[in-house]
Simulated assay, not measured.
Amino acid sequence: MERQDVIEALRASGESTLENAKAKALAEYDQLFNVSLNIAVTGETGSGKSTFVNALRGLGDDDDGAAPTDVVETTMKATMYEHPGMPNVKLWDLPGIGSPNFKAKTYFKDVNFDIYDFFIILSAKRFSENDLMLAKEINKIKKNFYFVRTQIDNDIRSKERRNGFDEQKVLSEIRQDCKENLKEVENPHIFLISCFQVEKYDFEMLRNTLEIELPTHKRSALLQAWPVCSTKSLKEKIKLYEGLVWAAALTSAYIAVIPVPGLSIACDASIVLLFFVRCYYAFGLDDCSLRRLSKKVKIPLENYLRKSKIASAIRDKTLTRMQVSAALGTVAAIEFVLSLVPVVGSIAAAGLSFGTTMYILREGLNELASIAREIRDVAGLNAIDH
């Protein structure tokens, strides 16, 4: 690399040598895109497990690929659903405990508890004896579990017409009732949520708690996949990607020294494309997320994506590896020729790839972040946060 590129890469990585910086970049890049996260969603029949899984994936119950929902038990076996934009994040919709097909006494043999990183135990009413049994069994295998009381929006609507209605008082009463039913669990984590109003109640508090208690290498996967619940959570997502632009660029530079025609640019293109697609889904710019938000605020939001060429290309499925390769194509021949020159040539090739990719990633990230902020502003969500 040119000296300025080396200085910038070392400063961004916090390492003292280029080799250490490369190793760190590869590790962080791999962690961002490849570390798996398996979330188990369980609870009694009718607690809204499938709807919760869909909400975490940014899908409505009627969207293509959504977990099926109904008034009767629809989950007959542990079913895995990948996050639409983060395939390393997997949500498992487990059968409802206590249903005719899954008796409480045999449930733990029927469902393999070992493969999950943590458990969400849902209840639409009061936590029951079956829920306590679940918690105790999960505790035996030394994994974390969290009690989530769903359909809070329905509880609020049923009581808001009463004289002297106080929403905070109602929420406090529900929370206390949950605690009373979970006395046998020491310091239970209890969260009140609505799957249709993720910006309200405890949805973001749930994510914050999960993030704190997850192993460090799993946290970025959770942050990327979790729906945008507030201006603060969007800022955290943007900050995450800003902090990893250098790693993606340096990973590209590391690949660029391999003297195979077309390999460098193909890898650069793959890295750029994957980075942008991850941002697109993490920021809630995908069709399903925008459709849900548009329906909620009664404002058509999808057309705002047209202000971003990158977002539009991803939406229209025209941002392909070939397209990104073309964007980088002006330096393709130079990179390849330089990569064939021993030592000096390879370093120069890596430097060119690093600088080019760094610029493209920064500009693209800023563009996607800007449109995500504008959409939240138009939807009136920033005002709600304040």
Rank of each mutant, 00 (worst) to 15 (best):
V257I: 14
L328Y: 07
S158L: 09
K307Y: 13
K143V: 05
L293P: 14
R149G: 09
I212W: 04
D63S: 11
Q224L: 09
D268Q: 14
R321G: 11
T330C: 01
G243N: 14
E129A: 08
G355D: 13
S123D: 13
Q31D: 14
V378Q: 12
A27C: 01
M80A: 15
L206R: 10
E236L: 13
V331T: 06
R219F: 06
Q224C: 14
Q224M: 15
A313S: 14
A12I: 00
P188C: 05
L182R: 10
W246V: 04
C195D: 08
M205S: 10
L122R: 07
E82S: 13
G96T: 04
D153K: 01
K103H: 13
P342V: 04
S50H: 07
R373Y: 14
L319P: 01
E82Y: 09
T45Q: 15
D202A: 03
V148S: 08
Q224I: 10
M80I: 05
P100L: 05
D62Y: 12
S252G: 15
I97W: 09
N34P: 01
K200A: 10
V72I: 07
K125F: 10
G164A: 04
A66I: 08
A40M: 11
Y81E: 09
E242K: 14
D155Y: 13
I7Q: 08
G43C: 10
E363N: 11
L273S: 09
S312R: 04
K136T: 03
K200D: 15
L328H: 06
V277P: 00
G85C: 01
R278M: 04
N38H: 14
S123G: 10
E28V: 05
L263C: 05
R219E: 04
N187Y: 11
M1N: 09
G85N: 04
R3F: 10
K296P: 00
A248Q: 08
A266P: 00
K140I: 08
T330R: 12
A27V: 03
E173G: 02
Y281Q: 00
G85K: 01
Y81L: 06
A40G: 15
V245F: 09
T330H: 13
P188Q: 10
D62G: 02
D385T: 05
K317L: 12
A253L: 10
K235Y: 09
T356E: 02
L244G: 00
E204F: 07
T216P: 02
F191R: 04
Q4I: 07
G243Y: 03
V245N: 05
L234S: 02
R321C: 03
